[in-house]
Simulated scan of single mutants.
Amino acid sequence: MAMFDARSGLPTALRRRPRHRQSAARWPWMLLPALLFFAAFWLLPFARLVQTGMTLDRSTQHSGYWTVISQPQYLQSLVNTVLLSLAVTLMTLAIAAIVGCFLARQHFVGRGTLLALLTFPLAFPGVVVGFLVVMLAGRQGVLAQLSLGLFHERWTLAYSLSGLFMGYLYFSLPRAIVTLVAASEKLDRSLEEAARSLGASQWRIVWDVIVPGLKPALLSSGALCFATSMGAFGTAFTLGTDLNVLPLTIYGEFTNYANFATAAALSVVMGGVAWLGLMLTRMLTHTKEENS
């Protein structure tokens, strides 16, 4: 039997419809400030960046995108940046996963202090990280002084891709450690005990139980690490402007040669590669959720 409202005499379901319609009509207006902010500070500038990349380059008289794909130095810069970012990502995840599992499972005096020290570099900008790499592996750094005393020659790594790898790794590790410590604390230890009771070795437990349990955290940390390494500028600029990586290449084209078209095209390409990495991570994460 239908319920009627005492005041209006209308069925209760009909009386409530206008409220739902008002709520449905109200939520787009609530999103308007966020949409305006998104359009003003990202969509419009990025559209302008894409348009600038289509203009003619001053040196080649071709569009910026054609210059990027036709000139080997720009392609080499892109390859160097992608490979360096992948290497940093893989090394960061390997170290952070081991450290995260250890700190999540071991409780000892000074554990909180150790975790605080490991995450302290989060407060450092890229320029400071580059300066620390110079102090460690620069011409007057610790490594150079030790090699000079032992082998009578200075070993320097700071001003090469090896030094940049060290800087990016130092910059990325604290963020990954924070994420993986929290993820390791949520692992179901009973699954490991069950696998161990069935005779599984420690390596089988790691690959079949721990790694799948940490997979969402590993994917998210890896995506952020890769995207950050692709566009990191402060560390690379501190270690030397001759390094052939995309952030410094974009900086040189923009400031030294005023090739705005090439700089814009390189920026779009770099952003596109980082975006593809993030989208691939989301696809892998959604695939895991659907399979589970």
Rank of each mutant, 00 (worst) to 15 (best):
residue 288 K to V: 12
residue 75 L to G: 14
residue 112 G to S: 08
residue 207 W to R: 13
residue 9 G to Q: 04
residue 51 Q to Y: 11
residue 285 T to R: 14
residue 169 L to W: 00
residue 232 A to S: 14
residue 81 T to V: 09
residue 104 A to M: 08
residue 52 T to N: 14
residue 224 L to K: 09
residue 13 A to F: 10
residue 27 W to G: 07
residue 181 V to T: 13
residue 235 T to H: 03
residue 240 G to M: 09
residue 110 G to E: 09
residue 4 F to D: 04
residue 151 F to Q: 07
residue 98 I to H: 10
residue 154 R to P: 14
residue 158 A to H: 00
residue 281 T to N: 03
residue 57 D to S: 15
residue 262 T to A: 13
residue 291 N to S: 15
residue 210 I to D: 10
residue 278 L to E: 11
residue 95 I to V: 15
residue 86 L to F: 08
residue 227 A to N: 12
residue 35 L to M: 08
residue 277 G to W: 01
residue 116 A to W: 04
residue 179 T to S: 09
residue 82 V to E: 01
residue 225 C to V: 14
residue 277 G to R: 05
residue 267 S to Q: 04
residue 102 F to P: 06
residue 107 H to R: 13
residue 58 R to P: 02
residue 258 A to W: 12
residue 72 P to G: 11
residue 69 I to R: 00
residue 222 G to W: 00
residue 271 G to T: 03
residue 173 L to M: 05
residue 23 S to Y: 08
residue 155 W to M: 15
residue 222 G to C: 09
residue 172 S to V: 01
residue 190 S to Q: 14
residue 235 T to D: 00
residue 165 F to P: 03
residue 217 A to Y: 00
residue 214 L to Y: 08
residue 167 G to I: 02
residue 42 W to P: 01
residue 194 A to G: 01
residue 158 A to C: 13
residue 195 A to D: 02
residue 255 T to D: 11
residue 271 G to V: 04
residue 211 V to R: 06
residue 184 S to R: 05
residue 1 M to T: 13
residue 221 S to I: 05
residue 30 M to S: 05
residue 207 W to C: 10
residue 195 A to G: 07
residue 127 V to S: 11
residue 280 L to T: 09
residue 122 L to Y: 14
residue 280 L to S: 12
residue 19 R to F: 07
residue 179 T to K: 00
residue 116 A to Q: 09
residue 6 A to S: 13
residue 234 G to P: 12
residue 101 C to E: 09
residue 24 A to F: 11
residue 122 L to R: 06
residue 193 E to F: 08
